[in-house]
Amino acid sequence: MGFKLLSKLLVYLTASIMAIASPLAFSVDSSGEYPTVSEIPVGEVRLYQIADGVWSHIATQSFDGAVYPSNGLIVRDGDELLLIDTAWGAKNTAALLAEIEKQIGLPVTRAVSTHFHDDRVGGVDVLRAAGVATYASPSTRRLAEVEGNEIPTHSLEGLSSSGDAVRFGPVELFYPGAAHSTDNLIVYVPSASVLYGGCAIYELSRTSAGNVADADLAEWPTSIERIQQHYPEAQFVIPGHGLPGGLDLLKHTTNVVKAHTNRSVVE
């Protein structure tokens, strides 16, 4: 069995187990497998329904001669939608809004960016022009300005110390501490036991640490421990890039980060 097929099978099995364990909360999309990078042309966006009122959005972007996937989250909030992270750029984010209108038909009224990198804030200006209120932590807003990236308009308070959590509509926002970046936030959907790890969490097929220019490698494993301790009931975990899975993604990420750190020390 090929690795790609095995990865998709694991996603399907995880979703099936969740649907059985929580039949009222989960209505997993039966329309197909989780979209992969090879299936999404740059400039297009796919939506994948995880649970009743919960979707991931998947886009792709060219970077350094390669094409990478990027995940975000959409959560229903009454007759409105909360968006977590842009679709990595203005063109993708405009396509995301169009796809949401086509498939869901509810307005996106608020959006949260989970850290300051372009795959999370690139497209904020498109959201703002569409009347979406954009939010991020003060740290993310400051770092985005320093980096020359787009800056969300509103500040999220109460997320300055490791372990801080605040309720934001249908989700809980959690600051686990520094990891992929010093400002990275985690998003949890309690009604569906869905954990969105953003770039602080890796997919299972990833074996290298990737972009760690703004990471705190020493603190990252401790931050992941905080996530595990705060959300032990999480059933569906979405990484910032690639295929979702279960809580095993947290341990896998820790292993990859520690291996990278150990290699760096040896070198």
Rank of each mutant, 00 (worst) to 15 (best):
D183K: 01
T86I: 06
R167C: 07
D119T: 00
P170T: 07
V194S: 01
A59M: 03
T86M: 00
S205T: 10
F26S: 13
I58L: 11
G105V: 07
V132T: 07
Q229L: 13
E39I: 11
L156R: 04
A136G: 09
H252V: 03
F116D: 02
R76K: 07
V75L: 05
I151S: 07
L82K: 00
D52A: 11
Q229P: 05
Q228I: 10
A51P: 04
E150D: 12
A95P: 02
P176A: 06
K8R: 10
T60D: 05
P107W: 05
L10E: 13
P41D: 13
N255Q: 12
L127P: 04
S56T: 15
L217C: 01
K4V: 06
V212H: 06
A21P: 08
L24E: 12
L173N: 03
G123D: 05
V108A: 08
G89Q: 00
H241N: 03
G105R: 10
A90P: 14
A213H: 13
A129K: 11
G163C: 02
S31K: 09
A95V: 11
V146N: 12
A215N: 03
I151C: 02
P176F: 01
A94T: 14
E267I: 08
I238R: 02
Q61I: 05
I227S: 04
L106E: 06
P190R: 10
R76S: 13
E101N: 12
L97T: 04
I17E: 08
L249N: 07
R167H: 11
N262H: 11
W55P: 04
H115V: 00
V132Q: 01
T114N: 00
S137M: 15
T114P: 01
A129V: 10
P69T: 15
Y188P: 01
F63P: 01
D77F: 06
P170I: 05
V42R: 10
K91S: 15
E150Q: 07
S208V: 11
I50K: 04
S27E: 09
V132I: 13
D183G: 02
G246L: 05
W88L: 00
D64E: 08
H230C: 04
Y34G: 09
P176E: 00
N184C: 03
R128A: 13
V28E: 09
G78A: 08
E44D: 10
E33N: 09
G245A: 06
Y12M: 14
E219H: 08
T14Y: 13
S113G: 05
T153L: 11
W88Y: 01
S22W: 15
G198P: 00
N262Y: 11
N71R: 02
R141Y: 05
K258G: 11
V237M: 03
S27R: 13
L204P: 06
S208D: 13
G32S: 09
L82Q: 00
V54D: 05
G65M: 08
L250K: 05
A178S: 11
N211E: 03
H180W: 01
P41R: 12
I84K: 00
R141W: 04
S155Q: 14
T140N: 05
H154E: 10
Q229D: 12
V42Y: 07
S193T: 10
T114H: 00
R226D: 01
D216M: 06
P232A: 09
T207A: 14
V266A: 14
S7G: 07
G65E: 09
L6E: 15
L10C: 14
P221L: 11
L6V: 14
E203W: 01
N184Q: 02
L217E: 06
T222Y: 12
Q49S: 10
A21H: 14
T109V: 13
E147K: 15
G177V: 02
F63C: 04
A66W: 06
A179P: 00
T14E: 06
G131P: 05
G72D: 05
G198K: 00
L13E: 07
R46I: 12
V266E: 15
K8T: 15
K251W: 11
R226H: 06
L249V: 03
G65L: 07
G105Q: 11
I151N: 06
A218E: 14
R206N: 15
L217N: 00
D79K: 09
S27I: 09
H252A: 03
D248Y: 09
V42M: 07
G198V: 05
